[in-house]
Design a binder for these strands. Sequence first.
DNA 1: CACTTGACCTGTCCGC
DNA 2: TGCGGACAGGTCAAGT
Length: 294
Amino acid sequence: MPELPEVETVRRGLDKLVLGCTIADVAFDWPKGFPNSQADVDRFMLGATITSVRRRAKVLIIELDTDYSLVIHLKMTGQLVFIGSKSNGSRFGAGHPSDSLINSLPDKSTRVTITFSNESKLFFNDQRKFGWMKLLPTVAVADLSFFQKVGPEPLDDSLTADMFAKRFQRRQKTSIKAALLDQTVIAGIGNIYADESLWAARIHPNTRVADVTSDQLNTLFDELRLVLNTAINKGGSTNKNYVNAEGKKGSYMNFAKVFRREGQPCTRCQNSIDKIRVAGRGTHICSNCQALPT
DNA sequence: CACTTGACCTGTCCGC
DNA sequence: TGCGGACAGGTCAAGT
């Protein structure tokens, strides 16, 4: 699922819904995705209060007042869905009481259920089981190998176009799309926003990084940030499974220019959008707007 | 090191 | 309808 805009949307939802909540119970049976022992959970989660919800790249960090944190990666199909509970026992969704998720969770994809002292619940669902959640000492979170290697946040105010361009210097021989998807170059970009930003910057995804001009990299920097900010404003993209912390879908797919629009006209030139394969991933382009250098 | 490919899972869709 | 294969928002480990 989730790329930076989706994870950020979930983070904002959790920040609103579970900050200050106290954990009363944790139900889990998923050693591969949640490897902590019952003893760890008893000692560092039960009775703990959530003090902050942060995001780095596509990873969520839920900090507890026990100096432990839950570190969560949703990978392709992970969801974190909050469902409240009224004092009379009836359930309500955070924003949309009619949402079908309210009465269907937990379901067969539910891997972890956290119950808070006010009886509301947070479900970690993951159909494909690629996602994970780890309970770690907060001071150890930064030592995770992923955080040691991950590149800068594309929306960080301090990131300049020059700094952005420099990140690509050690990936000269690969395609620009493979480099964009490489989390050690820039954090948070996945298949949807790689395709969308390359279309906006009129760069063919198969262009070798060495053949991307500095003007094109400058344009890509601007367009990438525009695409990501727009996607956050639309609540992210729901291609299939993604929902936010309230169980709601994102609407960015209605505004996408190429992603999953194969066969439809390019909004700039009316040429039919193509789907090709680049860096082992399905890739959407306008072959008229996005020419390969000759 | 840089680069590519397959593996990890479950579900769905498409062609025969 | 059934069945096999390809494919799906992301990382990793292993190979060259």
